[in-house]
Design a protein around this nucleic acid. Structure first.
Lengths: 154, 154
DNA sequence: ATAAAACCTCAACCAAAGTTGAGGTCAAGA
DNA sequence: TCTTGACCTCAACTTTGGTTGAGGTTTTAT
């Protein structure tokens, strides 16, 4: 029996409007992401965008990474690192997730360090130009957030 | 005895280059801050900027607030709220410091909430479109960071 | 068959936080 | 005095992450 790939009616390709509606981003944003090579599309006979369903997950990943504070350029590098011969697996996304976690940890450490410094500044009435550690980020605070060198970020 | 204000040689007015050198920001940045009304200057006979020494503290405050993540427009609103009849006191700066602390707290709460969500995402292999709370910021995470409404921020 | 809704491209625009450059003036040391 | 360095203004450019609009085509529903 030759297993012909049938056109299943349900998981068919999505139009840009459908992706926008389902992912919650504007159509213009999808155009923008495509221009930036974060996502790509096939085209219909009449040149309209057609997306595989897995674009929804990609857009979700982009939005979450943005919420973590990762710039699109870095997200693109991460997406580019996915194997192109197959659809990304849960393990692939988990690698992303893990690296975001490191980024988050480091940002939290940095902010917490600042908050604690701010506490002593409140206490001592400082912000003084000579001795407030908040003045020069290269000191104690710098040590708190040298950053685990987020993949693909310079 | 009439107390004539003597020109003290030491705390004299500073040129833009001196302020740049001492505060660590570029001259162009000082111009920019002045254009945005964050700082102001007197002018010499030849139209060059002359700053009172206290501009150094103001610039320091701006830089620290920026490190906390506060946009210049909000910083300006805070600076504008200072009494203009006298030089800012330690108590004035402490109010700033306290409000930054709140801002920091709220950002830390937000990031921590995200990190914890991310943990469960790593655990469950999710990022799934249907059940990952990271997908819709309006849920649990939203509640973590309604923000104490940072003064002068909308 | 036709009209409305959705889509296309390309260019321009927005905000934030500055930087860069052109063309000209001011001030300080040799 | 004269030259160099520091300064002046104003306009344009940069980056990030998009949005808006004009002018034209495709798809879909009636």
């Amino acid at each position: 029996m030759v297993e012909k790939k049938k056109e299943l009616p349900f998981p068919r390709e999505l139009s840009v409007g459908e992706v926008a509606a389902r992912s919650g981003v504007a159509v213009s944003t999808l155009h923008f992401y495509e221009a930036k090579n974060l996502i790509k599309s096939m085209r219909s006979a009449g040149n309209q965008r057609r997306y595989p369903r897995d674009v929804l997950r990609k857009v979700a990943v982009i939005k979450i990474a943005q919420r973590v504070g990762i710039p699109l350029a870095s997200i693109k590098r991460q997406l580019d690192s996915l194997p192109q011969n197959r659809s990304p697996t849960a393990a692939d996304w988990q690698r992303f997730s893990a690296s975001w976690r490191e980024e988050l940890e480091s940002r939290i450490r940095l902010l917490t360090g600042m908050r604690d410094q701010l506490d002593s500044c409140i206490g001592c009435g400082c912000l003084s130009l000579t001795n407030c550690p908040l003045r020069n980020p290269w000191d104690e605070l710098g040590k708190l957030g040298p950053g685990p060198h987020f993949p693909g970020r310079e």
